[in-house]
Amino acid sequence: MNYKQQELEENLTSLIDGEYIAPNLREELLNRLDSNTELRVAHTIQTATKNILINRKDALSINAPLDIQMAIQRNLANEELMNSEEHSSTFKQTFYNAYNAILAIFLKPVIAFPLGIIIGISGYLLYNQSPNNSDAFSYVNITHNGNDNLCFQAYNNFHSLEQGNLSLQKVTQNKEELSRFFKEKGVNYPVFYPEIDAELQGGVVSEYKGVKLAHFVFKAGDKFVYMYEVPNQMIENHNLNINPKAIEIVNKADWYWEKEKGSNNTMVLWRLKSNMCSIVTNLRIDQLSALIHVKES
């Protein structure tokens, strides 16, 4: 095979791949395919080999395991958290510097003495005019409109569980027995159990918008792992809602992980066959993800 032949064959590869080749070269290649045996052989090999890979693409592709997908999401969340903390400490430093500069001005005796008198008189007047000074700052009302939100409900239920305000209706470590209990209590969708390294404690049935829903409680060591499992249809019909951002992540990456703000609780959301599941626990994200396996039973 001389260099010319090699060059022709490589350009033939471009032709087969639909890449650009100069019009005159293209024409020459097409003409030579009829008369040049070696070029024809090259065409046969290149085309057949390309086609077999394209045809077997699905079989040759290897999907990222779910635990790796989860780990990546955790890494991104941690990265985001670290960024926020960096921004926060920068902000604190700036604020501290400004505070010191202002303090230096107000500590000058010519300003500090009259200011102290003004503050004292104002404080006295405000205290006496306040209609209910003991309650003025005792309660901060934060409005939430998420009562139909699955995650919101899951958090609340977990809090109730932790505080001892709810207890199991069925205490069992047997999955079949618990499934039978759910069925008897009117849960009319199939319930599935995740593969989780935690001991089943039992379950509870609740009713929401006329639908009986299944709740599971597991224990990992001395930590509760609460799981709320609802049919996907309830989400699709908007009988129950999920934060659009969270559902978008579940759609893309199968799992949505979250650390509850202001606490050490962790929430994970994912689809288990025909159901949507949410686990809430006071384990850390890495601890919880280590417990959950990708298969379900």
Partner: peptide, 30 residues
């Protein structure tokens, strides 16, 4: 855990303030 009443597991907890999804972030950096 002992077996108690189903109503204890009510899902409408309007009075419980949870800072999970709806709180608006005011920090522009965030």
């Amino acid at each position: 855990l002992s077996v108690l009443e189903i109503d204890k597991f009510a899902l409408t907890n309007e009075e419980i303030n949870l800072d999970t999804h709806s709180k608006v972030q005011s920090n522009t950096l965030m």
